[in-house]
Design a binder for these strands. Sequence first.
DNA 1: TTTAAATCCTAGTGATTTGGTAGGAATTAA
DNA 2: TTAATTCCTACCAAATCACTAGGATTTAAA
Lengths: 157, 157
Amino acid sequence: MKLSTKGRYGLRAMLDLGLNADEQAVSIKSISERQGISENYLEQIIATLKKSGYVKSTRGPKGGYSLKMGPDEISVGDILRALEGDLNPVDCVEVNDNLTCQESDLCVTKFVWRKISDSINQVVDNISLKDLMQEQYRIDDANESIVMDNLKKKGCK
Amino acid sequence: MKLSTKGRYGLRAMLDLGLNADEQAVSIKSISERQGISENYLEQIIATLKKSGYVKSTRGPKGGYSLKMGPDEISVGDILRALEGDLNPVDCVEVNDNLTCQESDLCVTKFVWRKISDSINQVVDNISLKDLMQEQYRIDDANESIVMDNLKKKGCK
DNA sequence: TTTAAATCCTAGTGATTTGGTAGGAATTAA
DNA sequence: TTAATTCCTACCAAATCACTAGGATTTAAA
């Protein structure tokens, strides 16, 4: 019941794209350095995200990646499902699997799996990349204050 | 992001124990037959559940397994965590991992992981084995009615 | 026109996990 | 004594994970 590194790295990569979006595209190399993820592996992850339509790329020098749409239009669920497949704890939840369901016992557990499924998807679909970016800014500001406080304590002006 | 067969089979096995609880203990063999799960594998799963304190056993002929406490005292979460380990989507959620957290980016995603974690655990901790047993009885009754209806349609009395 | 920085693409690979199987030892009711 | 059962441990094949490797293609800039 764990996410793979693809989902984890992928979310961080998308967040990185969002936070470092300016006129210029963001290269794999720079994401890799900031996030501490292997370039080759990251490449594969971002390729998947591109295929799913959340990222666009430009080739050649000065090339790189950027978000294909606004960070408010991309949810954490979109990103995770692109990289991990559906977020259901078992497969039979979405399949309309009447053969399996003849076994009524299975249906009772299915009731559980569906509830878990719904709760996971409800959470991830209601957090956008923009939300995370804003959270990040908040954290940065907080750290900034701490730094300021320390400087004051040391008597810096 | 999938549960393994241990969790799925384990929940069915526990439900089976609950539904077939009478004066006599329930043997692996009978669970295996009803649930279509290999005896040897089931043995390992139930051994884990026993170690975790949810199941007790008696050896020898007429021996077998039974729930160690009332089905209202055992939650789906108890069972799944015993078999799958914690139900967090990533490890860093519960570890108070300050080293990792120095990277503030990681903290932002951690915020997501924690929300997912909480929602999963909230769901599974609020469904007891008793709830599932009652759900099963409801399904059985419904099927019974359908059978009755069909008999009536066919003119049976 | 050349160079080099970047994406694109695909194959391979070691380690780990999954989902079991196999089979003998110990216990105990009949 | 027998046979049904749990207990215990070792083993194993297949799949998945988390990458690495390296060449092909594109393109901005010198």
